[in-house]
């Protein structure tokens, strides 16, 4: 039990560190007009164990979003996006529930539930995350086109990276 929590906490710290120390500084466009923002730390929230009460998931999401915000100097933006993502997590879990249900003790990862299942599950929630993130960041629907372009591009690039990382994890374990 203790071991699992330590495991999760270490994972969170690693993801956040990777996000704010490395990925934050990556600018694929090389200019100010950057449309691709790579964010992989949401996957730490996606792979939380299924049995954790939603109440704690929300608290954890808010905390992680807040920590990332501190490094991005954008108080509230990441936190709000994380909250929007996890509020839909139970719904998406219910929609994609396998015929014989979930094993209560597992995390929704590739090694536990398969590549196809995970790709459906993660892409829906990640899209929600990026959409809400860019809405909160740009904060006006005057630039709805910009919001959509940034959402879609960032979503694709980040998803690919997240899949690779997850695949790597699943092979390792």
């Amino acid at each position: 039990m203790n071991n699992i929590w330590v495991n999760h906490i270490v994972r969170f710290i690693l993801y956040i560190a990777l996000q704010v120390l490395v990925l934050k500084h990556i600018n694929l466009a090389g200019s100010n007009q950057n449309y691709i923002f790579i964010m992989i730390y949401p996957v730490a929230l996606l792979t939380l164990p299924i049995k954790i009460p939603q109440f704690f998931v929300i608290l954890i999401a808010f905390t992680i979003g807040f920590i990332v915000d501190l490094f991005y100097v954008s108080p509230g933006v990441h936190a709000g996006a994380c909250l929007w993502m996890v509020i839909f997590r139970p719904l998406v879990l219910r929609i994609f529930e396998p015929k014989n249900g979930y094993h209560t003790d597992i995390s929704p990862t590739i090694s536990n539930l398969g590549v196809v299942w995970f790709s459906k599950y993660a892409s829906v929630l990640l899209f929600i995350f990026f959409l809400s993130y860019f809405i909160l960041e740009i904060f006006t629907f005057v630039y709805a086109g910009e919001i959509l372009v940034k959402t879609i591009l960032s979503f694709f690039v980040s998803s690919i990276i997240i899949f690779l990382v997850q695949l790597f994890y699943s092979f390792k374990s």
Partner: peptide, 21 residues
């Protein structure tokens, strides 16, 4: 209380957004 918590935290983050950005 998860929905209430969500709303409260969402309001806090919105407040931070308009206050500090």
């Amino acid at each position: 209380g998860s929905l209430v918590l969500f709303i409260i935290l969402q309001c806090i983050s919105l407040f931070w957004i308009v206050k500090y950005n």
